[in-house]
Nucleic acid binder design. Sequence first.
DNA 1: ACAACCGGGACAACCCGTTGCT
DNA 2: AGCAACGGGTTGTCCCGGTTGT
Lengths: 203, 203, 203, 203
Amino acid sequence: MPKGEQTRQRIVERAAPIFNTLGYSGASLAALIDATGLEKGGIYNHFASKEALALAAFDYAVQEIGRRYLEAVRARRTAAGKLVALVEVFAEQLDAPWLPGGCPVGNTAIESDDTSPTLRERARAAMTSWHRLIGSTVKQGVRSGELVAYADPYAVATIVTATLEGALMLSRLYDDRVYMERAVAHLTAYIRTLQATTGVGLA
Amino acid sequence: MPKGEQTRQRIVERAAPIFNTLGYSGASLAALIDATGLEKGGIYNHFASKEALALAAFDYAVQEIGRRYLEAVRARRTAAGKLVALVEVFAEQLDAPWLPGGCPVGNTAIESDDTSPTLRERARAAMTSWHRLIGSTVKQGVRSGELVAYADPYAVATIVTATLEGALMLSRLYDDRVYMERAVAHLTAYIRTLQATTGVGLA
Amino acid sequence: MPKGEQTRQRIVERAAPIFNTLGYSGASLAALIDATGLEKGGIYNHFASKEALALAAFDYAVQEIGRRYLEAVRARRTAAGKLVALVEVFAEQLDAPWLPGGCPVGNTAIESDDTSPTLRERARAAMTSWHRLIGSTVKQGVRSGELVAYADPYAVATIVTATLEGALMLSRLYDDRVYMERAVAHLTAYIRTLQATTGVGLA
Amino acid sequence: MPKGEQTRQRIVERAAPIFNTLGYSGASLAALIDATGLEKGGIYNHFASKEALALAAFDYAVQEIGRRYLEAVRARRTAAGKLVALVEVFAEQLDAPWLPGGCPVGNTAIESDDTSPTLRERARAAMTSWHRLIGSTVKQGVRSGELVAYADPYAVATIVTATLEGALMLSRLYDDRVYMERAVAHLTAYIRTLQATTGVGLA
DNA sequence: ACAACCGGGACAACCCGTTGCT
DNA sequence: AGCAACGGGTTGTCCCGGTTGT
C-alpha cells in the first residue's frame, strides 16, 4: 500500500469518531486537525473539501459496522438466531470504542435535515442496506418454515430498527445501558413470537 | 399581558421551529432574525444569549407537546386507551405544522453530545417526564387490574419511547409515513398484550 | 444623512484608491481594513462581499471622474475647447491625489479578463459613457460648422481615448510625466486639425 | 539541447499564456500545473519560485514579440514602411494565438504597481527597447532625408506606443477589432505626415 | 428607558506557494 | 522527478457588546 493511501486511511479512521461525536457538520477543521495530527494542507491534499472527508468517514463507519453484521449473520444457522445476533451487534454500538457517538446512520438521519444532501442520501442507502439484511433474513426464515408465514419482512425490519435506534438514543441520553438492555430483551421476545413452533405472537 | 412579555413570547414561538429544524446549535442568529422579524438588539433585549433563547424555545416546544399528551390522556378512561392515545399523539409529530423537524427531545438528545450541557439536562428532564407519564399510566392500569400484573412500567415506557423515536427518525429519513404507521400498529398490539384477560377494550 | 450611510460612504472613499492601486482583485481584505480603519465585521455590515465593495468603489471613482469631465466641458464654449479640456482633465489623473493608481476604467479593462464579469460590464459602461461624451462633442462641433464635416466622432473618441490611456500607462510605468505631456501635445494638435478654419488635417 | 533544458523551455512556453491571461500575480500554481502537465515539484525543480517562472515567461514572451518586430523592420526598406510594419505587427497581438491576453508589457505595466519590482523593471526594459526600435527608425529616416527634419524620434515613439496600447485595451475590453483598426489607420496617416515632400511612398 | 444599529474580533472553511522526503 | 505535508493567508460568517438616537 502506497504511503499516500495509508495516510488517507489514517485520516478517515481518526476523523470518523470526530464526525460521529460532534456531528457531520459540527465537526470543525480544527478538531479534525487535532485528531489526525496533520495540518490543514495535509488534509486538503487528500480530500477536496470537508464534506468529501465527511462522506469518506461516514462510508468507512458504515462499512465497518456492516462487516460486523455480516459476520454475526454468517455465524448463525437459524433465522431467529441471525436476527437476535443482529440486535446484539447493534447494541454493541453503545460502547464501541472505535466509534463513539452512537449509530452514524441514525445520527446523520437526524442531523442532516438541511445539511449535505449527499450525506443524507448515503444515510438512506446505509439504512436501506440494513433493512434489507433484516428483511431477507426474515424472508428466508419464512421460506424455510422456521418463521410464521405472516411474518412481514418490512414490518420486522422497521420495528427492530426503530426500537434499537430509539433505545440507543435513550441510553446515550441518560448514559445508562438499561434502556438498550430492555430493548434487546423486548426484541428477542418479539423475534421468538415470530418462530413457527412457538405459536401465537405479535405481528 | 405586558407588551414586553408578548414580544418575548412571539420570539420564542417563532424561534422554536428554527431551532428544531436546524439544530439547537446550527441555528444562526441571522436565521432567528429572519424568523422573528426583530433585529439583533431586539432579541438580545429579551434573552441574554443565544443559548438562553434556545432553552426557552426548547422548553416552549416541550411544554406545548406535553399539553397535548395530557389532554389525550385525560380524554381516555382505560390505561390501554391512554397508552394508545399517547402513541398516536406522538405520531402526529411527523407532520406537526407548528413544530417541523421532528421530536425536539430526540433531536436534542442526539445533537447535544458536546454542546450545551444545560440543554442536555433539559432534554433529560423532558424525557423523564414523558417516561413518568407512561409509567404512571401503566402502574395505574396494573393497580386497577386492567393490565397484567407483570407489566413493567419502566420497560413499557422504554419500549414505547424507543420505538416511536426510532420510527419518527425513519419516517423523516425516508419521508414516508409507513414506518411510523408500522410502529403505531406494533405498539398498539403490544399494549393489547398487556391487558388482563378480562377483556377491557380500547377506549 | 444617517450615520450608517456616512460610514458606508467613508468606506467607499477609502477603498477606491486601494482597489485602483492594487487591482480590483489584488486588493486584500486586510488592505481594505487598514485603509478604512474598520474591522472585517464592520465592512461586511455595509457590503455583502468584497466584490460588492469593489463595485461600489469603482462606481464612486468613475462618477467622481465623470463629474470633473462634465465640469470641464461646461466651462468651455467651442467644441475644440471642450475636447482639449477633456484631454487635460484626463491627464490630471496622472497625479490625482484622491485616486492614485491611474485610470480605474483602463485598469479594470486590463485586469478583469477572468475576474468579475460584473466589474467588466461596469468598465465597459463607463468607457462607453466617456466615448459618448467625446463623440457628442464632435458631433455638435460638426453641426455648428466649427469642425470639419468629415470629422468622425467615433474615430476621434477612439484615438483620443487610446492615446491618453496608453500615455498614462507609459508615464506611470516610467514615473515620468513627459509621455503624458507628449500625448497631450499631440492630441491638441490633432484636435486643431479638425477645426474647419485651419483646413487640412488628419482624419 | 539537454533534456532538462527542453523541459524548462516547455514550461516557459506553456506558462507564458497563463501569466498573460490571468495576470502575473493572479496566475495560480494550480493553473500552471494544469497548463504544463507537470507536478509542483517538477516546476520547482526548474524555477526557484513562482516569480522566477513569471520572469522567465515574461522574458520569453517579450523576446518572441521582439523577434517579430525585427523581422518586420528588416523586410522593409524605407523608414515609413518600417514604422507602418511595426504598427501592424503590434496590432496582430489582438488575436495572437500563441499569447492570448494582450500585450505582456502593457499588462505588466498596469498590473505590477506593487507586485514584483523586478517584473516592473523588466517591463520598463522591454518598453525602452521597443521605443528605441521606433526612435532609431525615425532617426535613420530623418538622416536619409526621407522623413521631415523636425520629426522627433521620442515623440513618435510615445505617440505610436500610447495609441497602440490604448487601442489594444479598447478592442479587448469591447471584444471588437474596430478600435485597433482605427488606431492603425490613424497612425498610418500620422506617419505619412512625417514623410518629406519628396514623395517616397510606403514600402 | 428602550429598541435598533453599528462595529468588533474570533473563527469558519479553503487555497496558497513552498519545502522535504522517497 | 513527484508526492506529501506545511502553515500562513484568503474571504466570509459568527455571536455579541457598546453606542446612538428617540
